[in-house]
């Protein structure tokens, strides 16, 4: 059968493609705890007014959280994010939420529902998300004082993980 032949040839070909891609791994990837990659600069219009330009925060640790109002784990991690923000705000750590694949009204509703107090805005063009290479939500980036991505966490964060990563950025002084 033609279809059987088609399947016979297509499947290994596609698997080969994936395996071959695996061979060309990019050494500049953000590995576990190694700050190798500079965070892309962005200028986000905030929902409460004003802008958040990442490069203006150089010298300060920044946590960038990508979320969507319809994303189940985004809601689940929100209380943790806000608690850690409250704990670390006085230590000079900045947080920003970036709503993606969302509308402004829904993003606002989400922020109100979970009582988020850190600044947030809508990435309506998807430019920021694409620059950071975000596919799944939520994803959090920990950006050190030098503007390098110290750690990135796909999925819901825990308080312990956030404290660990932020403390690491704070302890390292000028660099992580």
């Amino acid at each position: 059968m033609y279809s059987a032949k088609l399947t016979f040839y297509i499947f290994p070909l596609l698997l080969l493609l994936l395996t071959a891609s695996g061979c060309s791994e990019d050494a500049s990837s953000v590995a576990g705890n190694e700050p190798l990659e500079a965070a892309p600069d962005f200028d986000l219009h905030l929902l409460e007014g004003g802008n958040f330009k990442l490069s203006n925060y150089k010298g300060k640790p920044v946590v960038v959280n990508f979320f969507a109002s319809w994303c189940v784990p985004c809601g689940a991690e929100s209380p943790v994010l806000d608690k850690v923000y409250q704990d670390y705000q006085s230590k000079g750590v900045s947080f920003v939420g970036v709503a993606v694949n969302d509308t402004e009204s829904k993003a606002r509703e989400f922020i109100e529902r979970y009582g988020l107090t850190f600044p947030a805005g809508l990435d309506d063009t998807g430019e920021i998300k694409d620059a950071f290479g975000v596919y799944g939500m939520p994803t959090s980036y920990f950006i050190n004082r030098e503007g390098l991505i110290s750690y990135l966490h796909p999925g819901a964060v825990t308080e312990r993980l956030m404290q660990h990563e932020i403390d690491k950025m704070l302890e390292s002084g000028g660099s992580t």
């Binding site: 969507a68 189940v72 939500m137 999925g155 819901a156």
Partner: peptide, 10 residues
Amino acid sequence: YSPCVTPTYA
């Protein structure tokens, strides 16, 4: 598709 990150997927 824009996936939600499940614990396994994370």
